[in-house]
Each structure stands twice: as structure tokens, then as C-alpha cells.
Computed example of a mutant assay.
Amino acid sequence: MTQKRAKGRFIKTKVLEKSEKISAALKAYWKERRNQPTDEKCDISHICEGNRIFNLSALANNLECKTCKETLSFKNVVKEKKDGLHSTFVIKCIKCEMLNQVSSGNIHLVNNDQTQAHCHLKKKIHNDITTNVVLGTLNAGIGCTELNKLLMCLDIPEVNFNLFKKYEKEVGPVIEAAARRSCGKAAADERKLVLNQLDELAKEM
């Protein structure tokens, strides 16, 4: 049985070919959907294709021109920069023609003291959306490959494997700490139950 190496692991050739066919079919499907005529007046698919994940509160606060306070519109997007599932859009103000950066969500600083010593994070600024998705992915017991399959079906840009691992280093120690606390609590509860049973047994004797 022949095997090939894909994304850092060995996989059966038939399984890999099937996965590639499904991936190609999904890409062709979404490409055909985008090329279909639409009644919408605005078309920015040449700048940012597909769907995105937004934090509505952050988006509402960011959709304002930094210069003239005019409300910005995604009709005037001129550029998009992606960082995992987080996007930063460059939107032109129709009033003063100022270029504004609009983020799809919030960002946070990563404190190395909260992570293990060997988990050095080169980039200290992470975004909330990708962090939460990676946390949910690990909590569900799946990895980057399974996540990207889901994102592909949703027509959302995939997450790079190396980027996924970088965010995994942030949330991994948090999950381990929570697991240790849970195990410690379970052990304490079990010890308390055993002691109570011993007390009851001593009374009966």
C-alpha cells in the first residue's frame, strides 16, 4: 500500500487523492458561484474573495474615518491583509479620500510569562478571532487539517499550518493548566468521598 507525505505526516495515496479531489471540487464550486451574475451594485471579489469572520462590536467601532469621522463603507475597500482568520481592510473615505485601516476583530498581547519557557513567541500580538478558533479546534479534538476542511466548505480562507502552530503555543499551556486544575479538583473530591465513607464505616463498627 503506497503512502505519501502531506502536511508533516504520512497518508494513504487513495485518501490523499480523494481529499485533493474534494478540495478542487469545492474551489470550483465557489469560483462558479462568484462568477454568477448578481443584482448587487458593489463587487469587491477581486480584492477579497469568499466569506470572513467578524467581531461586530469591533467592526462597528472601526468603521469610522480617522480624519473626518465619516462612516466608512466596504464598497470602497482597496486592500486586505490577512493574519489567520483576522483581516485588516484598507478602506477609502469617500468624503476626505483618507485611507483607513479597519480590523475585523480585536487583538491582544501575548504574555510569555503565561506560557511555558520553551514556547517562545516571536510575534507578541495575536488576534482574538484566530486564538478563539484554535482554542475551539483543540477543545473539539481536531487539528489544522480538519479546521481547514470546515473553512473550505464555508468559503473562508484557510489557516496556514505554521500560523496554527504559533497560536497553539499560546492556548496550549492554558488548556494544560485547566486540565491540571480539573484533575486536582477531581482527586480532591475523590479523597473527600473516601474519607467520608471511612468515617461512616468506623461509626458502624
Rank of each mutant, 00 (worst) to 15 (best):
D155T: 02
C96N: 03
K12C: 08
W30A: 05
I129F: 05
A60D: 15
L109H: 03
T71D: 14
K4S: 11
K4H: 07
K122W: 12
N106E: 11
G136Q: 03
A140K: 09
G172S: 13
T130S: 02
K14C: 07
K66R: 08
C93Q: 01
K69G: 13
D128A: 09
E32F: 12
T145D: 06
K82V: 05
P37R: 10
Q116N: 15
T131H: 05
L163N: 02
F54R: 00
R52K: 04
A24T: 04
I142Q: 06
V78G: 07
D199L: 11
K31D: 01
A178K: 13
D113N: 13
V133P: 06
D199K: 07
K165R: 12
H108C: 10
M1N: 07
V134K: 01
L154C: 04
K79R: 14
L193Y: 08
N196L: 13
R34K: 08
G143S: 05
G172H: 14
M205I: 12
G143M: 04
S103R: 06
L201M: 06
Q36L: 10
A140P: 11
N100A: 10
N61K: 15
T145R: 04
L198E: 09
E204T: 06
K79I: 00
G141I: 11
F164L: 07
C119D: 14
V133D: 04
I156H: 02
K124Y: 08
I11M: 09
Q36T: 07
N162P: 05
S87E: 01
D83K: 01
H46G: 02
L135V: 05
A25Q: 13
L198K: 12
A60Y: 15
S73R: 08
K27N: 15
C42P: 00
N132V: 04
V159I: 01
E32V: 13
S19D: 09
L147H: 03
K4E: 12
A187L: 10
D189Y: 09
E40R: 03
L72V: 07
L201R: 13
N55T: 03
K79E: 02
I11G: 04
C65T: 04
N62R: 01
N62K: 11
K149A: 02
P157E: 01
A24D: 06
T145G: 10
C153T: 01
V159A: 00
F164H: 07
L147I: 11
V110G: 09
W30T: 02
D39F: 11
I91N: 01
G84F: 08
N196A: 12
A140I: 12
I91D: 01
L56D: 10
A60G: 13
K166M: 12
R34Q: 07
A177E: 10
N55C: 02
N160P: 08
D43M: 03
L72R: 06
K12T: 06
N148H: 09
K66F: 03
L56M: 09
E32A: 15
K123L: 14
C68A: 08
Y29G: 07
